[in-house]
Structures are given as C-alpha cells and as structure tokens.
Design a protein around this nucleic acid. Structure first.
Lengths: 181, 181
DNA sequence: ATAACTATACCAACCAGACGGTACAGTTAC
DNA sequence: GTAACTGTACCGTCTGGTTGGTATAGTTAT
C-alpha cells in the first residue's frame, strides 16, 4: 500500500458522515466523495458496503478494547481486574461516537452476522473474567449494567438526565467495589 | 373504522415479516401483501412508512407498559412499586420480539425523532419513580441494568449464555430487594 | 540497462433493480 | 352517501455494484 492510511481515511469519512449528516447518508458515493476517492477506489479497499460497516465495527472494537486494556494496567495485581476495567471503561465520544454505534446497529439489523466479530470479542473477555474469578451471575449483571448505561446513552433513552450520567456511573463502580471482593 | 383491527392486522404483518424475512423486507408492498390489503389500503391507514414504524413502536410501548402495570398491581402497598415492577418486567417474546425492536432501532438510526414517544414514556415513568421514592442514582443504575439485560439479549451480545439469563435477571431482582429500603 | 511484465491503487460511466409515494377510477359495506 | 377500501399503473430517485480502463511503482529477464 502506497498510503497505508487509505482505509483509515475512508473509515474516518464514513464516521464523519454519520455524525454530521446522519446514518442514512452513509452511502458508497457519499463516503467516496467525503474521503476524496472515487467510488471505484473506495470499492477497491472495501469490496462492498458490508465490508465497510464491518471495518467500522472492527475499528470500534479495537479502540474500545485498547482503552479497557489501558484501564486494566492500572489495576495490576488486584482482583477482578478484567471486570473492573470493563466497568470503568466508558468510551470517549471520539472513540465510541453514538452515531457510529448507531450505524453499526442499524446495519446489524439487516445483517445479524455483522456483529459476529463483536460477539467473539465478548466471548474472549468473558473467558478472561471466568479464568480470573470464576462464573457468577453477578459478574454478568454488572456487565449488563455497564452496557445498559452505554446503550441508553447512545440511543438517547436514558431515564436520568445527562448531567447525572457521571453520578450513575460512579454508583456502578462503587457498587462493584462493594460486591466484588 | 369499520374494522378497528385493520391497523393491528397491518402491524402484525409488519412484525411477522421482520421476524421471518428480516427487517429490511419491511417494505410497503410486502406489508400490504402480508396483511392481505392492497398498497392503497395500507397507505390509507398509515400515510407513509414512517407512520408505520411509529405505529409499531407505539404498540410496543403500550404492550410493555401494560405488562409492567400488571406487575405493579402485585406490589400494591409496597415501597418502590414502580421501579420494582419495571425491573421485574421482562417482556415476553410475543410482545417484545427482538426483530421488532431491531426494526424500530434500525429506523430510529435514520430518524432519531422516531423514538420521541418512547422518550416521553420513559420520562413519565421516571417522574413516577421520583414521586414515589425521590431521586437516587441507584434507581437509574438499576434501570440501566434491566435495560442492559434486555438490549444485550435483543442484540445478541450478552456475555452470559442464554441458559443463565434467568439467573442473571434473578440476581438483579435480589440485588434490588437488598438495596432498596 | 532496458524491455516486459505484474500488482497495486485508483477513476469514470453505466446499470438494473428496488423502493416510497402518487394518482385515480372503481367497488363494497353500513 | 360516505368511509373504507381495491387495483393498477406509473414515476423519480437512489443505491449498490459491475465493467473496463489508466497510472505508476516495483520486479524480473535478458
């Protein structure tokens, strides 16, 4: 690859479109225009729209898991490192842009298999948690709570006002601290 | 309306299509065919696709909230009735079909305002909870956990296996019992 | 050294199908 | 007679994807 950043440039473009113009505007032509490529050039890198969305999801996963792993470093030696780092990780808007998540979700509605890489990733983290501390419904409940906070926010269906977000999230961390020993 | 069930028949058809053939197959023509109406007749009842999706969401909300309210009846006189009934309500597949939720979510990705009725409903329940027991981040956290379980399941991204679903949910109810006093 | 060849990275133009929506004339049921 | 349809024909637009071609850098053979 002469410019190894071409893929990233395309993904950035798609992300920008989702955020500024709406998820429905992520069409091959618009992404091509926004990224400065022709439609043909775009399709050279991603051989179809599905591959493009797949790419967005994969980048999402790798970024988010990088943040979590960094978080985990701060917990070295402690118990429940994986789970606690998971709960603490609330992805920044830059990494986990609601519009991007929505785009992936919308695509997944028509192509459930699209989320497979995510499912694999989840399964891996689950195994890590089990290896670390066994299998307890409590763990999955805490995980669900963290996911719930995130998804509520992304979908704009949180019952609590945005200003209380941090407080609610902190409550989750406190609760985890208390329940996990 | 000569047949007050026409709307419901249409909504049922759309739901069936979503479940059996995929969300993307919810087109005006297919819904008309599946419901036994002509396209003209369909458009007579729902003046556009957006209205159709809106209708699906509204029925979803009313059914789910009916289940919750029934649940609430069983808690008459107790504290935190609204919140506890909310946590206990895990909608049946017939009411809260994953495919239907996905369909609404997919549509909402392109039309965020579509979720407004849901947001209003949420705000109402929130007010009820506050009126009942005040405003505590814990309440919204528990709610988020319940939503997380539901959304994880609907999206197929739950870390726990399906067989443990009930156990995890039960853990949520136990935890709520313990924390709400 | 240089001609022949290959792989990569694109571009411009086109296409076939689908979809939402309109129009409208006619029909049925109460 | 009016509300609730049927049925069909049509349209404009959008979209994903294909095709066939070009430019260029690098590699190989002689």
């Amino acid at each position: 690859m002469s410019r190894p950043s071409a893929r990233d440039a395309i993904l950035d473009a798609a992300q920008r479109i989702a955020a500024e113009r709406g998820v429905s505007r992520i069409t091959l032509e618009e992404v091509a225009r926004e990224s400065g490529l022709s439609k043909g050039g775009l399709l050279y890198h991603f051989p179809g729209k599905e591959a493009l969305i797949q790419g967005m999801l994969e980048r999402l996963i790798s970024h988010t898991s990088a943040v979590r792993e960094a978080n985990e470093q701060a917990l070295v030696g402690e118990r429940h490192r994986t789970l606690r780092s998971l709960l603490a990780t609330r992805s920044s808007d830059e990494v986990l842009n609601p519009h991007v998540v929505t785009a992936v979700l919308a695509a997944a509605a028509e192509q459930p298999a699209l989320l497979d890489p995510l499912r694999e990733h989840i399964a891996g983290v689950r195994q890590q948690i089990i290896h670390e501390a066994g299998d307890d419904p409590l763990y999955w409940l805490l995980w669900a709570a963290a996911d719930g906070l995130l998804l509520q926010e992304v979908l704009g269906i949180a019952p609590h006002p945005a200003e209380q977000r941090d407080r609610v999230h902190q409550r989750l961390l406190d609760l985890a601290e208390e329940l996990l020993q």
